[in-house]
């Protein structure tokens, strides 16, 4: 199978306003297959956000190449849907208009069929009765659902999620994770999911990338062979805790924290 997304020796160096340069990513190589769910975990400042910006084409790599379906990315891609850490909805628009915003912003006009599509998406994220509400009348979790619906509107091939549930409380967070899997099942996408939570990464993803500290590199790619559909049962699976402890050890090893048990675990 041909890889859908590939990063080939990708590095990125930011030049700051004062002339200094910061090396955010260094020699990153990986491949993502079509409709694969990939989670990226790593310590703060490991270049996770840079990864996201590179894939969406908002910035260009200073070394190497980012390719989607064998084509190098040279400008922002509109077939990429982005869900941000904060919902960042437009407070003056209704839920429906927020979901429609990318279309309105890009083309200026919204057809009747787009509106129907948006309403379907709103229904899918469970906000059927809220399409005319304004964001300030919704809870944080509901706002993020709108954010997800907005990212899905243009039916992108790639969905990038930048710690989308990190601002939510623990219960809502778990619920949203399962919700996301359900949506992904209905509308398969290639997902790059950035998170701080190891268990969230294992629960959701087919593959977990562990990043190392700055300059960020890909320290390890771990295939998660847990059966789908995943559920609360998955968390109780002994394999699940195996995966999480393995990833945790990777991260601690980088942070140079002594951990004797590292050697005994496969």
């Amino acid at each position: 199978m041909q890889p859908y997304v590939s990063f080939e020796h990708v590095g990125h160096t930011y030049t700051l306003a004062n002339g200094q340069s910061v090396n955010a990513l260094n020699d990153v190589n990986f491949q993502i297959n079509k409709h694969e769910f990939v989670a990226v975990v790593g310590p703060s400042g490991c270049g996770k956000s840079t990864l996201l910006r590179l894939l969406s084409g908002l910035i260009q790599p200073t070394q190497g190449q980012v390719k989607v379906f064998n084509q190098s990315i040279t400008q922002p891609r509109d077939d990429v849907g982005i869900v941000f850490q904060k919902p960042t909805l437009l407070p003056w628009l209704s839920v429906l208009d927020n979901v429609l915003f990318p279309l309105k912003h890009k083309y200026g006009v919204v057809a009747k069929k787009d509106k129907e599509q948006a309403l379907l998406l709103i229904e899918m994220v469970g906000l059927k009765d809220f399409s005319q509400r304004r964001p300030d009348q919704l809870s944080g979790g509901m706002q993020q659902r709108v954010g997800i619906a907005r990212a899905l509107l243009l039916d992108p091939d790639i969905l990038i999620m930048d710690e989308p549930f990190s601002a939510l409380d623990a219960l809502t967070r778990e619920e949203m994770g399962f919700e996301l899997l359900k949506i992904w099942n209905e509308k398969p996408k290639t997902v790059l999911f950035i998170t701080h939570s190891i268990s969230e990464a294992v629960l959701l993803a087919d593959k977990v990338f562990v990043m190392s500290e700055r300059p960020g590199t890909l320290a390890e790619a771990i295939n998660i062979d847990l059966p789908r559909p995943r559920s609360l049962q998955t968390i109780q699976d002994s394999l699940f805790s195996n995966y999480t402890s393995r990833i945790r050890k990777h991260i601690y090893k980088q942070a140079n924290i002594e951990d004797v048990s590292t050697k005994t675990v496969a």
Partner: peptide, 25 residues
């Protein structure tokens, strides 16, 4: 929020639209 500006950039919308539909409101 810079995320909205990135959203606008990723949609390759014109600067006029960025001002008119995002920044000014």
């Amino acid at each position: 929020p810079p995320e909205l500006i990135e959203l606008s950039k990723s949609l390759r919308a014109s600067p006029v639209k960025e001002i008119w539909q995002i920044r000014l409101p």
